[in-house]
Each structure stands twice: as structure tokens, then as C-alpha cells.
Amino acid sequence: MYKIMLRDDPVPNIHFFRIEAPAVARKAQAGQFVIVMVDEKGERIPLSIADWDREEGSVTIVFNEVGRTTRKLAQLKAGDEIASFVGPLGLPAEIEEFGTVACVAMGYGVVTMVPIARALKEAGNRIISVIWAQSKNMLFGVERLGSFSDQLIVTTDDGSYWRKGSILDTLEELLRGDERIDRAIIIGPTCMMKFCSAITKPFEVKTIVSLNPVMVDGTGMCGCCRVEVGDETKFACVDGPEFDGHQVNWDLLMARRCTYSDEQGKQLVYQCWHCAQW
């Protein structure tokens, strides 16, 4: 059993849990995830690692309350325990000196971007973070990501905070600007990653996305998380979760992510207006 040390709910439907898991904390790296099971009858679901503290022996996960399991998880409080916490899984984010990196994030992606931006910054990159939210009351983690950024841009759909406009226009404007962007990393809802990848493509900026397909074991055993990247079928759990956004077969990924969406009930939050993705 793994104890929830701390819980934080920065905005509706987004929850942070700090979990006591010293062995996972010892090995966690930017870009990795864990598989969580709430109780012994629960599902195994992948959740992003937002942060870790090796001394304290804790790992912080962040999740969006969308389906049965995340709803169940959201009912727990500090001091409660979860049945299973497996990780760190997946390949760590690719960290090198690339030059100027645009870190584009929305929702829980903002905080999962933090360790990546931090590592990239330490590797000598210039970080431009672009954060998107529907509205000011949905924003969180801005200061945290900002603290590892050389430049920060926040855009909201309704203009309630900073600039008004869509992420796509903002990203395109950045790419058209004077500063050369060497790499883009995009983490957020699947359709946002899809459309942002389409924006960066004509500019030939290498674009990395962090995919979140349905998984079961998370160790390469079941193939449930298979995604098509270029001409190849990859398992997101062991070959990813980071892939080249220009090579991903997005329609397939979206269809596969919806396999169980009717069992899960309607996805109400962070649903984009183009499709049923979250």
C-alpha cells in the first residue's frame, strides 16, 4: 500500500497527490509516468509524474478527473492509501542542449512539463514556456513552470488572464517571430498536441509530444497502448511516452483512446470542441 501524504486541488477536476514511494522517487526522471491502482479491484491506469523528492521519498502525481478510476482516486484524502503504485515507467524525456525550446502546455501538462523544463534548463537550453487555459480560473502551475523559463507566455480563450487567443495562434506567432525555435515540446490534451504539431510542422521545428493512450500493465506486455509513429507500431509504455508529433498517427490514437469511453461515462472536462478527446 502507498500512502497519500498530501493532496492539493488547484482548480476543479485537477488533483495533485504526493505519494510515499521511496523506491520510485529514487529513480524518477523527467517525462516518466507511473501505473496506479486505487484498490485491489481497481483498474491499472497511467498517470504522469509531476515531481519527486528523493530525500522525502515521495512522488507527486497529477491527474484529471475524467473516468471511473480517476473519480475514485479523487475521493481519497491525505492519509489514505492506494493499492498499487508502479514506476518509474517509460523512457525519460530526451534532455540535451538543443538551443531554444518552446514548452507548450495545458491542464495537467503544465506541471508534468515542469521537470522537463527544469532538466532542459539545467542542460543549457533557453526555455520559452507557452501555457494555455480556457480561462483564468483553470490556470495553475504558471509560477512553477515560469520559474524554469526564460520567457513565459500565457494565453486564455476568454482573455481573462494575460493575452486572449487560442494556443494555435499564439504558437504560430511565436514561430513566426524573430527568435529561432530549435525544438517544441507539447504536453496536454490529445487534440491540442495534434493541432499544435500541425502548426509546428511547416516551420520544420522538431516537435515532441507525450502520449497517453490506454494502458494495462505499462511494461510492454499487453500492447494495448500501441501507437503508429511513422511506419512503425510502437508501444507507448516502453518506447514512449515521448514521440515525434509530426510522425504520430493522431486519428488512430484518438480512436484507440475512445475504446472504453462509453463505459467511462461522458467526458465532461477538458473536452475540446473538435472531438471527444481529453
Partner: peptide
């Protein structure tokens, strides 16, 4: 690690590896 056929359409929904199905 499951082996697949590597034929077109194998990543459609409703196509499982036996490992996933049995797990």
C-alpha cells in the same frame, strides 16, 4: 512481449493481443 501479425488494420479497435485480452 506479444507478437503481432504485422498486417494492415491490426491497430483497429477490437484487435487485441492475447496477452491484453487474457490479462
Amino acid at each position: 512481449l506479444p507478437m503481432f501479425l504485422n498486417i494492415p488494420g491490426e491497430n483497429l479497435n477490437g484487435v487485441y493481443s492475447a496477452n491484453e485480452f487474457l490479462t
